[in-house]
Structure formats: structure tokens, C-alpha cells
Amino acid sequence: MSVYSKPITFALLSAVVILVGTFITLFIPMMLPSTQPVSDYIKPYTAIELEGRDIYIREGCNNCHTQTVRPLRTEVARYGEYSKPEEFAYDRPFLWGSRRTGPDLNRVGGKYPDSWHYKHMNDPRSMFAKSNMPAYGWLAKRKLDTKYSYRKVSILGYGYSESDVRNQIEEYRKKVTSADYPARAVRESVTPPELRSELTEMDAIIAYLQKLGRDVKALKKKEMRMVAEASPVTASKRNPFAGSKKAAEEGEKIFKKNCAVCHGEDAEGGIGPNLTDDKWRYGNSDSDLYTTISEGSPNGMPSWKGKLGNEAIWKVITFIRSQREQD
């Protein structure tokens, strides 16, 4: 009697055969803490960020956006520091994704100011004419439901008390509805009047996006500060193209492609400040401008060093300078 004439034995045997690989590659890693390490510098989501994450899941954002930066040179240049396992300790479910119809988002937190996101979520094509992302303006027309917020964070074991959750929600509401919220104008332009003093689904999803990768970036900044303090010599930088008309023209093209979305077609300002006047937030020497463009700034300017590179940054500076000379 062979196994091919005993259906139940055959079924049991198949179960054993499929469970070998399952046990070794699935159950053993689950028992090893090193598979999903937990680190102090990674903080769990706040109740608002978690609500935003649930909207991200509901809308299926993970079908077009990944959340893992791979340790590859061009990927790190495009998105930032590659992803570490400890970053995902609070992710249930994980949202790594499988296709990049849109860019990776694991380092999007802090890359752009909130105003950028309100404008972009509301109408992506108002910023990038050829983008194929769906418009999500309707999220700003829906009040955020926080009925289950406490239940959610307790299931996930984030360690917040019920009053912590209430405070987190209230604090975030105060932040986005206050008169000096930097994104106030854009937020009000996309939010209907009756919801302007409430939290909307749009507010929550932006809070979530701003959390992505933030803890890793903070750690990286701290490390860089320590290195800088240890070696106080900073090289002075000079623009190799200073005054060149050709470089200014090339710089204009680069500017239109990358910078105009926020600073306006002629650098007259928009989400980002006007670059044709005499006011400079981070210093006005060539070297200061270079640092601001290449490293980014705390108010929302992204870091461009990986995307543009040395030469292109200097050409953009040449263009910006030429704009001022014309006026």
C-alpha cells in the first residue's frame, strides 16, 4: 500500500512537508528578538499619527508607495538614509509595499513643510502637472473620527493612558488651528469653513507622513552635530560659476524643474520664501546659500545634495544671484 492510495496519510504527509520551510523561515525568526529589534530612539505613533496611518491603509496608499529605502547608493541619494529594522517595531501591519508607482515615503517626514502636503494632497497636479497621483482633497472635508483612538493604541500597546490620548488629540487640534500655524493659509484654503477649527482626515494623514523617518533623521542629525563639534574646521565655499551668464541660464532650467514648485517660477516665492529680495533666513553668503540648498533647513526646505549634486547647486545659486541683479 503506497501513500498514493491513502488520502488522509497523504494529507498529513503534505502538511509535514510544507511545514518544514515554514518552521525554519517563519517561526524561528519570530522567536528571535533580532528579527524585529526595538530601540529607544524610535518612538511609537501618537494617537493622531496612528489615525493618519489607518487612513493611509484605508485608501490603499501602500499600493503605489513603498516604505523601505534599500541600502543602494542611488536609493539613498534619492530618499535618504536606508531603512533599519528597529524603525518598524510599532508597525502593525507593516507597510513596506511592493511597487513604486509613486516615490518611497519612508523618509518623507520633515522633508517638506505641512503646507506642501496640504497643497499636494488636495491637488497633486497643481504642483506637478504630469503627476498621476489621485487628488485627495476630499480628506479635508471629512472630520476625523477619534472614537476608537484609545482602543487602537491600547491594542497596539503604545503605553498611553486615556488622558494622554485625549491630550494628544487636543494638542494637535490646537496646533493646526492656531493663528500662527505656518501652513494656516493653505490648510484653510482646502478645508471647508465648518471644519477649520476641527481635526480632519487630511490633518491626520499629514501628521502621519511627517512622522515617517523623523526619529532616524533626528538621530542622524545628532551624530552629525557630534562630528562637527569634534572637527570645527569648516571650509569656506566659493561659487566657481560666479557671474557666468551660461551657468545662470542652466541654473534657471534646474530651478524651474526642481525649485519653482515652492519658490515660484521666477523665485518670487510661494510655499517657500521669495528669493529675489534682500531677506535671507539662513545667511546670504554663497557659502550659506550652498549649505541651505544642500542640507535643507528646519522650516521645510529639503536637502538637495543627493538629487542635484555640487555643480547644479552652484548653478542654481548663480541663477538666484542673477535674478537679484536684474531687479
Binding site: M30, F88, D91, R92, F94, I155
Partner: peptide
């Protein structure tokens, strides 16, 4: 919510 977190869930 999934009972697994992060890398295990993946």
C-alpha cells in the same frame, strides 16, 4: 490590527 509587527509581519 495584525498580531505581528514590522519585519515579522512582512
Amino acid at each position: 490590527y495584525s498580531i505581528y509587527a514590522g519585519a515579522n509581519d512582512a
